[in-house]
Amino acid sequence: MSRAPAGSAVAASAPSRPAVVVTDLTRAYGPRVVIDGLNLVIERGEFVALLGESGCGKTTLLRALAGLDPVDHGRIDAPGEAAVVFQEHRLLPWDSLWRNVALGLPDQGARERAAAALSQVGLGHRLDDWPRNLSGGQAQRVALARALVQEPELLLLDEPFAALDALTRIRMHGLVKELVARHRPGVLLVTHDVDEAISLADRVLVMRAGIIAAEHRLDGSGDRAALRLRLLAELGVHAESEPA
């Protein structure tokens, strides 16, 4: 009955298969091609950040990975379960926090699993509260708990912190890092914040013209300030060379 904490047992044994493999993906809205032959692999336990100008197709890619939109051409292989956190929390206002987190879980043991997930995001004491009593940051933490309670192999985050104030955002970064380290899903974080991408990700992608136009690995050794400037340049921003 008890689920092994994902990561420990699972990642150690099975020869780890990727969380998702995208091959030659194409997606168009009418005549407008938004994704144009895109390739991408995300390993389990890998944290990937996706940067790109507004409107370049990041959300479109994420929705395709989540199975929300049809694939026009190409393949997406995501063998395990995928969980999504949207920019808006999308909590059901008529359900208590634990019922929100448990949405879609089998009834047996649902409350216990939801309670465990909520306490991981620091809200274990508010299982029966209504979503309307939460601040923006708290609501987003519940959304995170709801995603992680599924033990997903692929965690898709679409600018989940964009609407939060700066301090709350920094706290959320810490929390997400910790939770991802514990559950070890493959993560795709869509963001427009270069610093967020650098501080969270193992790998940063830049999307442009419907494909992954640039890719940077963060192995801890590189010069982060220099990477920041390069990323900004790749996004079309030519900043002065002092870091913020």
Binding site: E88, R90, L92
Partner: peptide, 24 residues
């Protein structure tokens, strides 16, 4: 958007109606 959430969570049609559409 909440209906879409239901799809992300793999709710079947009955569950979707019971948990999301009727309460809404």
């Amino acid at each position: 958007k909440l209906v879409e959430l239901g799809r992300v969570r793999n709710l079947g049609p009955i569950q979707l109606i019971r948990r999301i559409i009727l309460p809404g």
